[in-house]
Amino acid sequence: MSNVARQEDPASVERIEHDEFDPVGTLALIAFYFAVLVLLWLFTYFVEFLGNVPTPVVVA
């Protein structure tokens, strides 16, 4: 139950500033998810939805 870090040798614990934390891998993964999301949306709306013509329209 105790904190793992506390059990470690204090010498091996590195303290860094808030902004020094730099999880590039996580950022890359999120960027990839984001790109997938955008592509899925474009596909769903512009290909799957708009491609199934005709679509009901408002008549002037």
Binding site: N52, V53, P54, T55, P56, V57
Partner: peptide, 21 residues
């Protein structure tokens, strides 16, 4: 295969305007 799709409810008149090219 199209977006021309509506529910048809007794008592209501569903109105859908489309143009097939």
């Amino acid at each position: 295969g199209t977006n021309t799709n509506t529910m048809v409810i007794p008592g209501e008149i569903s109105v859908v305007t489309v143009e097939f090219d």
